[in-house]
Design a protein around this nucleic acid. Structure first.
Lengths: 343, 343
DNA sequence: CTTGTCTTGTCAATCGTTTGACTGTATTTT
DNA sequence: AAAATACAGTCAAACGATTGACAAGACAAG
């Protein structure tokens, strides 16, 4: 059907060198002289030859492929951080000649243990699992195996699973310190509780507020819903204002929920930040476009992607065997937070 | 370092059958009896054995991998339709045992002709190129080659390149007919001109309006910008209202630009649809949440993904050698369009 | 002149499957 | 009873690279 593929043998014959020599040239092995290299490459280029990757993979025991598994959410691609993380991983991987295999953690994918199959069959050299929720128990299967495996922007308590994750605990402390420093002592927290990072954020926030040296704050928290959405933030704010009408600040575990809170406050004619300060987390694009612009904690997901891949590459080179990185976050003060009002 | 991989040889030895038998079992070949199959599979499962994919690929001359190349835009992942298309492709591919290799059309990717390399090296059995703009000339390189290659939701004039694409021409006719049928005779068009599908939409829209049996309409068009964004739509509307203050309807080539137009009209106190009707295209989620809700043309990108992959699979099976599909679109009438006002 | 060292290239084993051709029985047909 | 057909499994030749061990020649040192 198709033109018969040219192989390394053809290149060898036509250039007059041995099979091995051609192979060494293609792999930039220093044992080969420049003259030879040039002659061989000329033939290679003339034939538009690229070595068969299956054969190469078989002989070299490496697929030069990394798997990225993303959660099976309907709108997963439009979620802020997925794209950023993937871009980061892709950039590093591509720069080292690795390709990215994309998978979605569907029920089938999990039930058939496709993730194991990928690694055992050596179709992939390593695997990234991006931000799943607290129910992803099957991941524990990787504990104690020799497979290259990294949880990205997530984390499981009581396991030795590798991870690279934004430091949500630190974010919570930064955010709490900011609000407490502004004098807020009645704070509403809209939390996300279906991820371990979300739980960590909530717990650290509550702890920081309770132990604040200048005097503890009273915090009321509600769940913002599974989707961490604007809609969920709106609904959560309704609850919050019933439970704690006197609050002077609202902290949302992500910016989308914070936008929902702002919307509620606008709809109910509460001035931001004069009456109520609002703070988010992530620092999505929209945060700076709002009016007032949203104070938040910056989570650099692109960097999370970059670092995850760096770790993976180190593992593949045998430089490390495990990793557990918490990446720094930073406070971004904009217009939605101000000193607490005096009642 | 790691436990030595179990191979088909180990399974053969331990189950007492030959290499070939094991292989045939694994490939569900009918030549093998149920008893044998069961015995072999028992050993396979006990060892957690999965065949080496490189070896399999080498022997079978198929990588069981499909490439998806996406445009190199900063926010590409958050773009409405990328996720939908990829989900569609993924679903079909996964159901047939194919994996998805993700690539981004960076300058490097193009300059080094990585796309060719992937196909020639047989690292991938086929390639999808999702929605690039009019500058993607390098794609013409695939004309007349035997490579499995499909343009997804895009299309190049004057080439024989395979494509599967929403029928933007039909969309334009549907939209025009809707507005013309409502009596609009002064229409503003916000077009996207950096893709061939965008140009097609514009031309068909103008043509339909010019040739309308019940009397042609006067259409003024402006470019909504490279990004097809809300912001671009807003700016375009400003221009439009200067050029044609008497217009009674605005047609935007996508919903995001339509939202920009609606925003401008709200800011300038024009009632929608009483004074000006607004119409979009794509039918993004937000379209139905707006107030008034946005009339639009539905483009089913998930289906575009599904169909692209169907075509690819047919090509791989040798059932077809080329494809050029325009997928149907449909009119969605909501609250933003109404009969033209009488001046 | 012998020995040792460097350079540069080649040999040949190996990676782990798939698959067309073949073999040896058992069963059916003539 | 002989011949034809099915059935179930095995043989062995690919598939197209990589790579450690080896070799041949040039040159320098002793």
């Amino acid at each position: 059907m198709s033109a018969k593929c040219t192989t390394i043998k053809d290149i060898a014959r036509e250039s007059g060198f041995s099979l091995s020599t051609v192979s060494l040239v293609l792999n930039n092995h220093p044992r080969i002289s420049k003259t030879t290299r040039d002659k061989v490459m000329e033939v290679v280029r003339r034939h538009n030859y690229y070595p068969n990757s299956a054969a190469r993979g078989l002989a070299s025991k490496s697929s030069y492929t990394l798997s990225v598994v993303i959660p099976n959410l309907t709108r997963v691609f439009s979620d802020i951080y997925l794209g950023e993380i993937i871009s980061g991983i892709y950039e590093r991987a591509a720069s080292q000649g690795y390709k990215i295999l994309l998978d979605i953690a569907t029920d089938d994918f999990i039930r058939s243990r496709e993730y194991l199959k990928l690694l055992v069959s050596r179709r992939t050299d390593g695997m990234f699992f991006i931000g799943a929720d607290t129910h992803a128990d099957f991941l524990r299967e990787f504990e104690g195996t020799f497979h290259r495996f990294i949880l990205v922007n997530q984390w499981f308590p009581d396991t030795k699973l590798n991870f690279v994750c934004a430091d949500y605990g630190a974010s919570a402390r930064l955010a709490a310190a900011h609000l407490l420093g502004l004098g807020h002592r009645h704070i509403g927290l809209i939390a996300g509780t279906n991820t371990y990072t979300g739980l960590k954020f909530r717990d650290e926030f509550l702890k920081t507020c309770a132990e604040w040296p200048a005097g503890p704050a009273q915090v009321v928290w509600v769940d913002g819903g599974e989707e961490w959405s604007q809609r969920g933030g709106y609904a959560a704010t309704t609850q919050l204002m019933q439970k704690a009408p006197a609050l002077t600040a609202i902290m949302a575990a992500n910016d989308r929920m914070a936008l929902g809170a702002m919307r509620w406050l606008a709809d109910n004619h509460r001035e931001i930040p004069e009456e109520v300060s609002v703070m988010g987390a992530d620092d999505i694009d929209l945060a700076s476009y709002m009016n007032p612009s949203l104070s938040t904690i910056r989570h650099d997901f692109y960097q999370v992607g970059i670092e995850s891949c760096n770790r993976m590459l180190q593992m593949l080179r045998g430089e490390i065997t495990e990793c557990s990185d918490l990446l720094p976050t930073s406070l971004v003060v904009r217009g939605s937070t101000a000193r607490a009002r005096k009642d």
